[in-house]
């Protein structure tokens, strides 16, 4: 089976993550959707690394992981700060900037 199958799998995971970000109102669940999208991109990078026969793609996936870890830390800190301010983690509640 060709490694291209993993690229299709990555597409499926990416779409599920994107749908979760669009659908869910719980901030933490939407954030997990973002994580799933990043992981799908990683899977595509590793599959392309296998297709091309070089490990540069794996190094890129490693960088994505590091950036995702930093992003999770800051994002969850923002969720905690919003929760402290208004006792909710719903994405629809903070709507002060709405015109």
């Amino acid at each position: 089976m060709s490694p291209m199958a993993f690229v299709y799998l990555a597409v499926v995971l990416f779409v599920i993550g994107a749908a979760a970000v669009l659908l869910r109102r719980n901030a933490i669940v939407a954030f997990m959707g973002v994580e799933l999208m990043l992981n799908a991109a990683n899977l595509a990078l590793v599959a392309f690394s296998r297709i091309h026969g070089t490990i540069d793609g794996q190094v890129m996936a490693f960088f994505v992981m590091v950036v995702a870890a930093a992003e999770v830390v800051v994002g969850l800190a923002i969720i905690i700060a919003v929760f402290r301010a208004r006792q909710t983690i719903s994405l629809d509640e903070p709507a002060e900037l709405k015109g």
Binding site: R50, F62, M65
Partner: peptide, 11 residues
């Protein structure tokens, strides 16, 4: 598991 399958055990 997919990464190990694709030849990336470190990842």
């Amino acid at each position: 598991v997919a990464y190990v399958t694709l030849g990336a055990p470190f990842l």
